[in-house]
Design a binder for these strands. Structure first.
Lengths: 188, 188
DNA sequence: CGACTATACGGAGGCAGCCTCCGATTTGTC
DNA sequence: GACAAATCGGAGGCTGCCTCCGTATAGTCG
């Protein structure tokens, strides 16, 4: 895991930044399946250059998302000290869900990645998985969370809700859906 | 809504059936985004013939799914007489969810179709929407279902769970997820 | 049975996207 | 300023979508 990084040549660095910028724009506009050739075109760069910097679509997505992921990871550490385990978990899930809902098609990608060690996104996702594990254990220990629900179930469900919120007209969809799932659909 | 149907020519009918057969196979193997050209090829038919019988991918999907949908619609009518409104709703959702989970990518298609009147799937989906509405009203009236949850929320959530069950390793995933959502994640 | 017409067939062709490969270009260094 | 290493760019091969129209065939009628 050594992160050797020779300094890039000036033109390479410039192109790298332009590509990221256009990728953000394109993902926002067309989802995570946006045309890579279009991204290169908009960045004023050949398609070969895009593929040199980002060998796969996932590599590009990963780089675009990394900042948000790091923030999210930090949030998890703080939440571990919260006096309300269940709310801490909910808060973490809401944050993660927002990340996952950032671009159309992203929830699908995230879920697929959970079982694919070769993906550049795998490391990030796995780290999150560990973090949420702690939050889940704590909430279970406090008797606030069903003991029989598993971490994979929670994660898949979370991404499913992000996925759903893409397809729901309302804007505050994700939060609402999370509430429903935590509280249950039965009349109280 | 007159269903005029001139009898097809013998070769046309034969090709129609072959295409449906191959479509079922292909959707099962590769999801609803399976290559149409491959389907035509496997059916021993030109791509033009496929498009003549099924002008859009959705038309083909719709035809493949119709039988299951009709069965599902019939189930709804019976469930309206069930003495347990909430269980009736759950049963209906489980059935619908299974339909939606039949092919990879189908939940997404179904959700998108809910707002697209021009889709050949729209009629089927809308009919279902009406049916589930009755079941939902009944369950609310009986005080067994939260009063503030809406039909669109329930439907999107259902398709989200179908979507999730595709991505969950276990096989009885959908049923389990439905239970979780109805009961809620909080410790009881 | 043979001819004629509505019906149906098939695949070429144009477009777009993925990804690879390698000759041409540019950067940084001595 | 020249040279090697690093980087660029896009042509090319592939697959898939969908349309269009010349060709083939089923069914009918004399």
């Amino acid at each position: 895991m050594d992160t050797e990084k020779k300094p890039l040549r000036a033109d390479a660095r410039r192109n790298y930044e332009r590509l990221l910028e256009e990728a953000r724009r394109a993902f926002a506009a067309h989802g995570v399946e946006a045309s890579l050739e279009e991204i290169a075109r908009q960045a004023g760069v050949g398609i070969g250059t895009l593929y040199r910097h980002f060998p796969t679509r996932e590599a590009l997505v990963e780089t675009v998302l990394r900042e948000g992921f790091d923030t999210q990871a930090e949030a998890a550490r703080e939440l571990l000290d919260s006096p309300e385990p269940l709310n801490a978990l909910k808060a973490w899930l809401a944050g993660m869900g927002e990340q996952s809902a950032r671009y159309r098609g992203l929830p699908e990608l995230m879920v697929d990645v959970l079982n694919d060690e070769t993906s550049p996104l795998y490391a990030s996702c796995h780290a999150m998985r560990d973090q949420v594990s702690h939050l889940v254990e704590r909430a279970k220990a406090a008797g606030e969370l069903r003991a029989d629900v598993t971490v994979p179930e929670i994660l898949v469900m979370l991404h499913a809700l992000s996925w759903a919120s893409e397809h729901l007209s309302g804007d505050k969809g994700l939060e609402r859906l999370l509430d429903l799932v935590f509280a249950g659909l039965r009349a109280s």
